[in-house]
Design a binder for these strands. Structure first.
Length: 330
DNA sequence: AAGACACGCAACCGCGTCCGT
DNA sequence: AACGGACGCGGTTGCGTGTCT
C-alpha cells in the first residue's frame, strides 16, 4: 500500500548545510533534474531528509534566486499582494519569481509587518493628537497611502509589461545568451548582508575546491566536478568560451548565485515571462519549483483577477479604497 | 571590553493535499 | 475506494551577527 517511506529518519543530519553538501546536491540535481526528492539522500549519500534537500534547493541553491535587499517596488508588490492574498507566500512568490516564498515570508515578518504597524500607530497617534478626530479621516489617510502604494505597483506592472515585450524581441534573437549577456552588463546592486552570505558560501566553496580538487571523491555517488561545472555554466551554453572560463573557476558558482540579481536589477519589476525564458535550464527550474499557472496569465488579466478576488474575499479596506477611484488606477 | 539584547536569516516542524499502490 | 507516503506550504524556532549599555 502506498509509496515506500520517504527516507530513513535515523541518522538524518540537521542544521546548516555545508558547502560540500551543497555541491553534492547541486551536482545531483544538475545530472538528474529536480524532483524525486526522496531518491536524493539515497543516491548521493547525503545524510539529509528529502524535505531538507528540497528546501535547500528551492530556497537557496536554485538558479534564478535574487539575493539582496528588496527594492521599493518589490516591497510594494508584497504589501499589495499580501493584502489581497493573505499569508499565501507561495502565491505571492509566484508574482516575484526571483524571490522565494521563504524570503518573502521572512521579509514580511521582519520588516513589513513592523513598517505597517508603525504606519498604523502613527496614524492612530495623529488621531489622539486631535489632528484627525474622526475615524473616517484616519481611514482616508490610510487609504491614501495604500492608494499610492497600489498606484505605484500598477505603474510598475505596466512598465513590466512593456519591458516584457521589449525583452521578448530581444529574446527572439537569442533567447539564452543574448538576454543573459545583456543583463550581465548591468552592475550589481550594493551587496547586502544577505548577499554577502552567499559570497561567503562561494568563498567556502572556493577554498574547499582548492583543498579538494576532486570533489566527487567525497561522495558515494558518481557526482563529478564536471557536472558541477556544467551546472555553473547554465545559461551560457556549452559553446560559450566566456562561460567556460567562469565555469572552471569557483567564481562561476558565485555568478550562478548572483545571476538573477543582475537580471532583476534591469527589470526592476515583475516580468515573469522574461525570467522564465532566460534560459531553457532556468525555465526548467522555474517550472519545477513554482507553479507556473500564473506566469502564463497576462498581467492585465492578473490584476483584474486580483481585484475581483479581493472583492469577493472581503478585503474590505482595500475594496473601499480601490472603489474610491479605481478608475484612475486602470 | 564585555555582556545583554535585538534583529534577521536559514532551517525545521507540522499539517493539508496530492497521488501512487 | 481506501490507505499511506510524498510533496508543498505556512508557522515557528535556532543561531549567528550587529547594536546598545
Amino acid at each position: 500500500m502506498g509509496r515506500p517511506p520517504c527516507c530513513d529518519k535515523i541518522e538524518v543530519k540537521k542544521g546548516p548545510w555545508t558547502p560540500e553538501e551543497d555541491i553534492v546536491l547541486v551536482s545531483y540535481i544538475q545530472e538528474n533534474g529536480p524532483g524525486n526528492w526522496r531518491s536524493i539522500p539515497a543516491n548521493t549519500g547525503l545524510l539529509r531528509c528529502s524535505k531538507s534537500c528540497r528546501l535547500r534547493w528551492t530556497n537557496y541553491l536554485r538558479p534564478g534566486i535574487k539575493r539582496g535587499n528588496f527594492t521599493d517596488h518589490e516591497e510594494k508588490m508584497i504589501i499589495h499582494l499580501q493584502a489581497l492574498l493573505g499569508n499565501r507566500w507561495a502565491a505571492i512568490a509566484s508574482y516575484l519569481p526571483q524571490r522565494t516564498d521563504n524570503d518573502i515570508k521572512n521579509y514580511w515578518n521582519t520588516h513589513l509587518k513592523k513598517k505597517l504597524k508603525k504606519l498604523q500607530t502613527g496614524i492612530d497617534g495623529q488621531n489622539q493628537d486631535g489632528l484627525s478626530s474622526s475615524n473616517s479621516m484616519s481611514k482616508g489617510q490610510w487609504e491614501r497611502r495604500l492608494q499610492t502604494d497600489i498606484r505605484t505597483a500598477k505603474q510598475a506592472l505596466c512598465e513590466a509589461l512593456s519591458l516584457d515585450k521589449a525583452s521578448s524581441l530581444l529574446d527572439s534573437k537569442d533567447s539564452t545568451i543574448g538576454a543573459y549577456n545583456a543583463h550581465r552588463t548591468i552592475p550589481h546592486e550594493p551587496s547586502s548582508t544577505y548577499a554577502s552570505s552567499t559570497e561567503n558560501i562561494s568563498k567556502l566553496l572556493q577554498n574547499w575546491m582548492r583543498s579538494k580538487p576532486k570533489a566527487a571523491e567525497i561522495t558515494k555517488s558518481d557526482v563529478t566536478q564536471n557536472s558541477f561545472n556544467n551546472l555553473v555554466m547554465t545559461g551560457s551554453g556549452s559553446s560559450s568560451s566566456e562561460g567556460a572560463v567562469s565555469a572552471t573557476t569557483p567564481e562561476g558558482f558565485d555568478s550562478l548565485l548572483s545571476l538573477n540579481s543582475s537580471i532583476s536589477d534591469v527589470s526592476q519589476s515583475v516580468s515573469l515571462d522574461e525570467t522564465a525564458n532566460l534560459t531553457p535550464e532556468n525555465s526548467l527550474f522555474q517550472d519545477e519549483s513554482k507553479p507556473n499557472m500564473e506566469t502564463e496569465v497576462p498581467f492585465t488579466l492578473l490584476e483584474k483577477w486580483l481585484f475581483e478576488d479581493g472583492a469577493t474575499q472581503g478585503h474590505e479596506d482595500l475594496i473601499d479604497m480601490s472603489l474610491e477611484d479605481s478608475a484612475g488606477f486602470f
